[in-house]
């Protein structure tokens, strides 16, 4: 008997699951309907208040947040961030079409490289698919134009998100995933990111920049 059959056999026996035909229907319904459960009221707000809550919660998680008026000023906001921290004017980014549409050429001194990170990038720029006001969390899907390495290897991770894509709760991202990839389907990686990397493993002292980015900068695009 295979380990699979042995384990499932033991489980069925322990659950006394033989003659219970209704179980399969219950399980199927649950998988199909994905009932939502308890949703905190905290983030059930009108859109502007939701964006404000997102900014507040992300800041509380030690991210920095800038709000800009439109896509066309994002490159300038990136340059300003790098300059304010005395970082070289270099970023790595994927081929996300929303990023591509931005006027990077206006930033004469900024060097933009494309593709996944090789570990030598000090700063990367990603576009989040969505964000969650409830906890100040970003949601990034992997894909052809959105390398996952950009979220973890560089010291500074700059994430652009449209204000209109900021949802109230975690469940809003689950709904988005279903709409985008189909029911029950997912991209290889969905990263929920709440603040920069940290560790409390030495004497329970919280320190930023453990293995992932030391700093997370979020640019919220209005309009």
């Amino acid at each position: 008997m295979s380990a699979r059959e042995a384990i499932l056999g033991k489980v069925r026996k322990a659950l006394d699951a033989s003659g219970n035909a209704g179980r399969l229907d219950n399980v199927w319904d649950r998988l199909m309907e994905a009932p939502a459960g308890i949703i905190p009221t905290r983030a059930q707000l009108d859109p502007e208040a939701r964006v404000e809550l997102f900014c507040r919660m992300a800041t509380q998680a030690a991210a920095t947040v800038a709000r800009v008026a439109g896509e066309e000023v994002v490159p300038a906001a990136v340059t300003a961030y790098l300059r304010a921290r005395n970082l070289p004017a270099k970023v790595r980014m994927g081929g996300d079409r929303r990023l591509k549409a931005m006027p990077w050429v206006n930033e004469r001194t900024l060097q933009v490289r494309h593709g996944p990170s090789d570990g030598d990038d000090e700063a990367s720029v990603s576009h989040a698919a969505a964000a969650i006001a409830e906890t100040g969390t970003l949601a990034l899907f992997s894909g052809k134009d959105n390398p996952t390495t950009l979220n973890f290897l560089p010291d500074h991770h700059i994430v652009v998100v449209d204000a209109a894509d900021i949802g109230g709760d975690l469940e809003s991202v689950m709904r988005l995933a279903r709409a985008r990839y189909g029911k029950g389907e997912m991209p290889r990686t969905l990263n929920f990111i709440t603040g920069p990397s940290r560790s409390g493993d030495i004497e329970q002292k919280l320190l930023l920049g453990a293995h992932g980015p030391r700093a997370l900068h979020i640019i919220v695009v209005d309009g």
């Binding site: 998680a61 906890t135 969390t137 290889r188 990686t189 969905l190 990263n191 709440t194 992932g212």
Partner: peptide
């Protein structure tokens, strides 16, 4: 409120 990285791998 939420850990820094919650990663869903498929």
């Amino acid at each position: 409120e939420m850990s820094v990285y919650t990663t869903v791998s498929t």
